[in-house]
Write a protein that binds this DNA or RNA. Sequence first.
DNA 1: ATGGTTATTTTAAAATCGTGAATGTATATA
DNA 2: TATATACATTCACGATTTTAAAATAACCAT
Lengths: 402, 402
Amino acid sequence: MRAMSRSTILDAIRNAGLISRIDLARTTGFSQSSVTGLTAELIREQLIIEKKVGEYEGGRPPMLLSLNPDGAYVVGVNITFDTIVAVIINMEARVLAIQRTPIEKNRHSVADIADGIVRAVQACIWEANFSKEQISGVGIGIPGLVDSDSGIIRFMPNYNWENVNLRDLVQMQLKHPIYIENSSNTLAIAEQWLGEGKGVGNFLVVTLENGVGLGIVIQGHLYRGQSGTAGEFGHITIDPGGPPCRCGKNGCVESYAGNISILRAARIAAQNGDWKPQHPDITYDDVLNSALAGNTCLIDIFKTAGQKLGLGISHLITLFNPAKIIFTGRGVRAGALMFDSMDAQMKLHLSTKFGPSQTQIVIKHWNEKDWARGAGTLVLGELYKSPMSRMAGLGKTMSPPG
Amino acid sequence: MRAMSRSTILDAIRNAGLISRIDLARTTGFSQSSVTGLTAELIREQLIIEKKVGEYEGGRPPMLLSLNPDGAYVVGVNITFDTIVAVIINMEARVLAIQRTPIEKNRHSVADIADGIVRAVQACIWEANFSKEQISGVGIGIPGLVDSDSGIIRFMPNYNWENVNLRDLVQMQLKHPIYIENSSNTLAIAEQWLGEGKGVGNFLVVTLENGVGLGIVIQGHLYRGQSGTAGEFGHITIDPGGPPCRCGKNGCVESYAGNISILRAARIAAQNGDWKPQHPDITYDDVLNSALAGNTCLIDIFKTAGQKLGLGISHLITLFNPAKIIFTGRGVRAGALMFDSMDAQMKLHLSTKFGPSQTQIVIKHWNEKDWARGAGTLVLGELYKSPMSRMAGLGKTMSPPG
DNA sequence: ATGGTTATTTTAAAATCGTGAATGTATATA
DNA sequence: TATATACATTCACGATTTTAAAATAACCAT
């Protein structure tokens, strides 16, 4: 009961960034005295602080409250095809330390990756001169289908894992509370907390990596579906006669717009002689660079990807009517190569009879850190729900050592 | 605050149908004394009643509580292309009276329909020997895009209405509280209340009429989207090269699976000589009957409709991961003609990598009354939220006159 | 300094809500 | 008829929040 009141206050502070008690009373609907009581409790627990004095407006100037950046620290870890990125973030999700660990080729058994995560977390904490007691938890983002309750990864196409329990393996070596979740979902939470989704009730996050993922936020809550498989946007069939997909079907969104699908199309073009790569072992980045340099054959590949993606996005808008769709992931670096045709195709498949589309399209500049940070916010969210579970004792000073 | 507790109790009673106080305490988590207090309040307000004594189980036999069927009466109205159906329902959503009013051809201005609704409501109340004071509200279901807050119908393809305020026109002649909502949404609410959606957190209702509609229930709440246009499933593009749609695009789900689209396809077949209808002015029912009688050309039309619908449904399952999808509307009478091919196509476009589909497909026997009843439950829901708003005084006896 | 104004805190009284413990009630069976 | 058992109610209590009012704090203008 009081947990809900606390949450309301915390959410309001997070949304505002910097807010006085009187404005808290106004926005939350609590009485002034209740706000005083609740904020006093949160200050005592060091979740929030009196940051600075606000603008004079004719009387006593307001004391502006903010989250306590140093109220807790957590580690966020993101796994991509070839890299483990771990970051330490503070209560404001600011990245204080970062650690990249390459995944060696063919070293991606579950045990290998679990060890890699543990080492990355330890190295990150060590190099930033933190002690492990200062870390309240570890969040792990996975590009695949995750049952976040049981911790089981049901399907992860990158390494072709099915039904493996990565969390337990990591937990055996790390004593911190560990949370695991699909990367698109962690990004959605991160956007809701501190990014484009702040204060937005309904929005979607589309991730363009090797696969194409979707995080769904509805009425302010992450939506996972009845059995946790909602949002497999990458695997809706756009064209039944299309190229094969890692999911076993043909013509999925992902089989056009996923980075490995673009790479595959480029390889086929190279085989057909439509394009001469500089070296035989081409990567997605090679393809992207050549396309950006003006190779028309490769430009066409991105254009097609954008078109198919655009049709899929039109489905999302028509079905979800979100306030925003946020694009992120390595794939957004293609920029206009992909998004111009996406935009055109999307508009083509939205009926004007329902009024102009209210959905705002946001393309985030891609940033490796953001993904690991997203995994970290997963833990921050849990801390907010029950701050008692913080590992670090409340009495201790929590200033960053670095 | 207490409103939520009351709702919890009411929901539990509605879900159970018949339940003792002690079981209420068990299912809701309230203490026995709280349940006594809350139920006493609800009984005083005549929302629930002590229905009968339950089975002896070793001690004092439980007193079983149920909703008070006669706690309130509301009118539900549904508009289809050619008919206005009004029903009186009680608190259990049982239909006590029904009134059909045909809509004359070319008499479908907003004023005409508003008058038709008013007359239908009045006739329904009159013929069932109710007094207007006994009716707590009127719910109207519209096959189109409705802004339920403002009461404005943004787009209704049947009569090609755009941005008209039907509610205000009706309100000028009826003093009751009037609610207006998209039919698919009213049906979703009705299913959640008393049908297949009872106790199911996430489910979808697909309506097959002239158009194809979608009602979305997520985490127990109807989802309307950011600006109220969520769920326009009928207008996602299945095949960009497909037939034109009333929405201005081509190849929408509706342009294959909507009843008028099937009728159109049959007319074209007749023109081409592929089929000889018995009379020139054919209707959807003629087409359906000839197909059921074995006309292969028409069977193919239904088969194609089912296939396109199936692809669309696979999108819904992949994106929403609902526990159930409930099909209703005149179109379900096509039965296996449509659903066999739908089923096959749907399965084809669901990846097996995410485990077997957990989504249960439910096809409801079509029934004209259900739609009007659905519009009525819209009002019942409002009554539950704030029983004080009931028009009929709490002190009055509320037994049905008939 | 003084007064005016707005922000915050404190205080006390009252309301609301749910709980636990004890009590009351209804039934079948020994 | 007494008893065991399970259901229901009563009542005093604690936790939480609100209202209202007063006190305090901080700042500017005069």
